[in-house]
């Protein structure tokens, strides 16, 4: 498949080593590492700002800016099982690299994505954020979330927790991994074609 658009990234980075890292991260979300880890106040503030900004941009449907919150070597992952299974073994609800995230945004932007007509309005509420120092300059964070999603005049509540792996690239913090764990991941889902 020859890519017709030069701005589209390829996906060599999502190899077995990356999947192994995802499963190691999944294990680390238990937050069993010491609670006081050497994360600087400066890093903590920057990471918190990124986490809140990413949620706000998704809610405000500023999706191009939202994409910029993510590293070019990122994974956005919503497991379909509880507890989580290796995504090489079982299907997920969503598993996107940067390219497929761009595809998802481009789909919504066509204006004929009928699952989003009328547009689904969302508000994320994030809390209980805990931070740990990761490998090298990586910061790991875990937050609880509630999303109120409004579609066609009806409210719906989604909840769960998110694991973030955040990395500093050229002095800018980016999301390398966002693992979204719905409390009802293994139950019937509704129209979740917005960004969680």
């Amino acid at each position: 498949m020859a890519s017709k658009n030069n701005s589209i990234a390829d996906s060599y980075y999502l190899n077995d080593a990356f999947y192994d890292r995802l499963m190691a991260l999944n294990e680390s979300w238990k937050m069993e590492a010491p609670a006081i880890s050497p994360i600087t106040l400066e890093d903590k503030q920057a990471c918190e700002s990124l986490i809140f900004t990413e949620a706000r941009l998704a809610d405000d449907l500023r999706l191009e800016q939202w994409l910029d919150c993510y590293s070019d070597q990122c994974v956005y992952w919503i497991p379909s099982s509880y507890p989580v299974v290796d995504p090489r073994q079982e299907i997920t609800l969503e598993f996107h690299d940067k390219r497929r995230l761009q595809d998802r945004v481009a789909r919504i932007r066509t204006g004929v994505a009928y699952s989003m007509v009328p547009v689904i309005r969302t508000r994320h509420v994030l809390g209980n954020i805990e931070y740990r120092q990761g490998v090298d300059k990586e910061v790991r964070a875990r937050a609880s979330f509630i999303i109120d999603a409004l579609f066609d005049g009806k409210h719906r509540i989604l909840s769960g927790w998110i694991g973030y792996s955040l990395v500093s690239e050229q002095n800018e913090w980016k999301i390398a991994v966002k693992q979204i764990n719905l409390i009802d991941a293994d139950c019937l889902q509704e129209n979740n074609t917005f960004f969680l």
Partner: peptide, 10 residues
Amino acid sequence: RQRPQPGREA
């Protein structure tokens, strides 16, 4: 023909 899957090239 398939839209590129995550990690396709790898």
